[in-house]
Design a protein around this nucleic acid. Structure first.
Lengths: 178, 178
DNA sequence: ACAGGTTGGTTCAATGACCGAACCGACAAT
DNA sequence: ATTGTCGGTTCGGTCATTGAACCAACCTGT
């Protein structure tokens, strides 16, 4: 993570994890990837991240096996970045970080996460309180909450406004009627 | 968090959380606080963090209500930094981040976390698999695993080597016999 | 054939965060 | 009076981040 790059003296898996995903923007890139963002330009407009930083982060994330760069069309050559198992494994951390942020620093709820089978909101440990099972990430549906901006500027935010499963790519991104 | 300081365009509780605890060192300071570190100097030697950065982090953490600065002796005036409820609420996030780091980037286990009532190792969701309950942080005992350094240089690491409950202050810190 | 747009980058100067070392003030012990 | 400890602050140098500009490959429309 920047500068010293490592937490040299730390003998700790938390420090180890932070060396990899602790840099600025990194976890937000992973979050977006789990939300279904795949393409360089979509990350760019959704995050408002400087291009150089995005390129650097995508490179280290693919280097660490958290995202995978995958060619999805030959001409013109276009790549997408897809979360690997290792990236997906960050979901509990991101969920609990988001929960903490919401409970302590946000007035209104910005998004709901629900169990696709029953519509129940996911509990604090990632479980469905109704079904009493841990909900795998691909069975989580995300939808906007009362605090969400109904008319965001960028098309990616707008696409994320309609309910969708996590991990499901946000492909079509059809042009809007003005 | 540094530079832009905020993730301006992000309307997201994860981004909000990262604005507060996403800076370099911050989460390691909180981790140490949960492990029982209380005093400026103990953070300093245990983390190997620059003094100025530590001072800055402690200030923002107390400012955000994550740690509380508390005078514990009058002369000479000495303060300790204690995690508040808001700081304690970061435990699930830190635990799951550490779990991710261990599973994906570490060969040997550096620490065990066990349920004090039964000695069972805490499960991936913070639960005790034997008792089938979520274990509150003060009922978690931390002890070194096979990968831990048996003879670390700084006294704080050495104090953390013997099993102790989380949150329990690591006070005495007796001088060592040479 | 050519202009212009889209995508996915790289380069660069300026800014700001972080680093380590030095310094400082309050107090205690000798 | 000197030395040591604790909890900082200050400071110059280094390194990461930023935003803007540039670039190359390819496509589309005319």
């Amino acid at each position: 993570m920047a500068l010293g790059k490592d937490y040299a003296t730390q003998e700790c898996s938390i420090a180890r994890a932070l060396e990899i995903v602790g840099e600025r923007w990194t976890l937000l890139v992973v979050r977006d990837a789990l939300y279904g963002v795949r393409r360089y330009n979509d990350f760019l407009v959704h995050l408002g991240i400087p291009r150089a930083v995005l390129a650097a982060r995508l490179q280290t994330l693919t280097g660490e096996g958290i995202l995978e760069k995958r060619r999805y069309q030959q001409s013109p050559p276009r790549d997408e970045y897809v979360p690997t198992e290792r990236g997906i494994a960050l979901w509990p951390t991101l969920r609990s970080l988001g929960l903490w942020g919401r409970e302590h620093f946000t007035e209104t709820q910005l998004r709901y996460f629900r169990h696709v089978d029953c519509g129940t909101e996911i509990g604090p440990y990632g479980e469905c309180p109704a079904c009493r099972t841990v909900v795998p990430i691909e069975d989580v549906v995300m939808e906007p909450g009362p605090g969400a901006d109904r008319d965001p500027a960028d098309p990616v935010s707008r696409a994320l406004l309609r309910p969708k499963r996590l991990l499901e790519p946000l492909e079509p991104l059809e042009a809007e009627p003005t």
